[in-house]
């Protein structure tokens, strides 16, 4: 008798469980057919970093090689060398390398960047046959325009300098005038 009860109980639980599975038969499939279709990715998705094109420097990034990101990076995956182009107040990076294999995607480098020129790439499914695939040269896409941008920055610097000069001159004149008036 106990045996039959046991079997009945088992059958009931089996049918109950199967019922749940059956109910889901009519559901839409949840699988994303990955290489063919891609699920929407969060706009904040963290990946390898890149240099963003900025307004102040058309066609290029606005990195000033301040090395803040290199210093804060917990896993030492960023290495930058900077140089100072002639007639420019700020430095520019000569090399900006990222070893993405070391990166922990913590985003601390983005936090400290004073010119907000760091951002994330949108490539989230990278794979490679060698370790060397993950050394990113962040300046690669901007190499060609570098000279142009430096010239542009020089121009901007000159303009700023001129403005400053003019302002100082005006102030000095005003002061002289004031002094003259007082006399």
């Amino acid at each position: 008798m106990g045996r039959i009860k046991e079997i009945a109980k088992g059958a009931r639980s089996l049918i109950g469980s199967m019922g749940v599975t059956l109910k889901h038969l009519k559901d839409e499939p949840v699988t994303v057919e990955y290489p063919a279709e891609r699920a929407p990715i969060s706009p904040l998705q963290r990946n390898a970093i890149r240099l963003i094109e900025k307004e102040e420097t058309p066609g290029s990034h606005n990195c000033i090689a301040c090395l803040q990101c290199e210093k804060i990076c917990p896993s030492n995956c960023i290495s930058i060398t900077g140089y100072r182009p002639e007639g420019l107040a700020m430095k520019r990076p000569e090399t900006f390398d990222l070893n993405f294999a070391l990166c922990s995607e913590c985003g601390l480098c983005l936090d400290v960047c004073p010119t907000a020129t760091l951002g994330y790439t949108k490539v989230y499914d990278k794979a490679g046959y060698t370790r060397a695939d993950f050394f990113h040269d962040l300046l690669e896409e901007y190499r060609e325009t570098e000279e142009q941008v430096v010239e542009h920055l020089r121009e901007a610097d000159r303009r700023k300098k001129a403005e400053r000069e003019a302002k100082r001159k005006a102030e000095a004149e005003a002061k002289a005038k004031e002094a003259g008036d007082a006399q």
Binding site: V30, I41, S42, L44, Q45, R46, S104, E105, C106, G107, L108, D111, Y120
Partner: peptide, 26 residues
Amino acid sequence: EKILDLLDLVSGSRLTYCYGRFGGLV
């Protein structure tokens, strides 16, 4: 996955979040 999508939306990571900062959030 639905939860991970939500957390991904705010933090940018699916699993190993580094979302908090001293004094607030990213």
